[in-house]
Computed example of a mutant assay.
Amino acid sequence: MPSVTHEVLVDLFKNRPRLAAEMLQDALGQPVPAFTEARVESSDLAEVVPSERRADAIVVLLASEQRPAMAIVVEVQLGVDRDKPYVWPVYVAQTRARHRCPTRLLVVTIDAAMARWSARPIDTGHPGWVLTPLVLGPEGVPVVTDAEQAKAAPEVVVLSAMAHGEGEAGEAIGVAFLAAAAGLDEERRALYADVVLSSLNAAARRTLEAMMKSGYQYQSEFARSYVAQGKQEGREEGVREGTLKTKAHDVLAVLDARGLEVPADVRERVLASTDIAELDRWIRRAAVVGDARELLASNGS
């Protein structure tokens, strides 16, 4: 099931169809043809792929006489999905066939590691056909702190908050969003305000809440879920960190109990491990090795 963060990002591109073209041209330096309208089209690609397969959004740029000038397949990617290198070329080919125009694949993510993963060229196996996704990662998302820019493109400032809100520019991004909020309909204003607040660092959030009203309460169910998801992920990460720390100390405790000297580099490596399965193997190995360095050697280190 798509996460709330995923759905928020998809909605930004659906609410502002020209956002896909703006990000291609302004953030990624990709030429976009002249167009008079950007329109969200059906993203159901069941003609070629199974019915559960569909792109997140398909935007068609229309030129004169409503003629398609370019289609953009927008895919939000927040985690590794081994199916995507196989289905993305299908999305592009099917969209191109349906609208009879040049087609681009735009992958959107707010995670730098996912941006690198998504940008890998896809060799389809056909000579000369290698699909290289165009990826909008956090580095490519503009830092929007100008009120007039925010008013002209509210979805861009929300995207900016999601990508950069934890950084030093968080407060300025939030203030810029407030300038744009008055021009939004009630539903979008509530959702966007919640998402922006949820994305800011603690100091920036406090400042913005004070500017909006004391004790701000999240207005949309969508964003309340967004906040709850973040808290749950934080709790899960805390549990995982505690497990790693406990298991690392268990490895060292077994070695110490057996009277084996533990060199500093071995101790540091064990304490730095972020792999629970690896630590479990080391606990078992610690009970039988004759030298602490054999612990790492058994792991291929």
Rank of each mutant, 00 (worst) to 15 (best):
V4F: 02
V8P: 00
V8C: 01
K14Y: 04
P17Q: 05
L24F: 00
L24T: 02
Q25I: 07
D26M: 14
G29T: 14
A34Q: 13
F35G: 03
T36D: 08
A38L: 03
S43D: 10
L45W: 10
V49C: 11
L61F: 03
Q66W: 05
R67E: 07
P68T: 10
V74S: 06
Q77G: 12
P89T: 12
V90I: 11
A93E: 08
H99D: 02
R100S: 08
I110L: 12
R116H: 12
W117Y: 15
P121M: 11
D123M: 06
T124V: 01
W129R: 00
L131E: 01
L131N: 03
L134Y: 01
P138L: 06
V141L: 03
V141H: 01
P142I: 14
P142E: 06
V143Y: 07
V144Y: 03
T145L: 01
Q149L: 09
K151H: 11
P154Y: 10
E155V: 09
V157R: 02
A161D: 02
A163V: 06
H164S: 04
H164C: 06
H164P: 06
G165W: 08
G165V: 12
G165F: 11
E168W: 06
A182W: 13
L184Y: 04
D185C: 08
E186R: 12
E186P: 08
R189Q: 13
A190E: 15
A190W: 03
L191W: 05
A193T: 15
A193L: 15
S198K: 07
N201Q: 11
A210P: 01
M211H: 13
M211V: 12
M212D: 01
G215R: 10
G215Q: 07
Y218F: 12
S220H: 14
E221M: 08
A223I: 11
Q232V: 15
G234N: 11
G234C: 13
G242P: 11
L244P: 06
L244A: 10
K247V: 03
V251P: 00
A253E: 11
L255Y: 08
D256G: 09
D256F: 13
E261F: 15
V266W: 04
R267C: 02
A272N: 00
A272R: 14
S273N: 03
T274F: 01
T274S: 11
R281I: 08
V288I: 12
A292V: 11
A297F: 04
N299K: 14
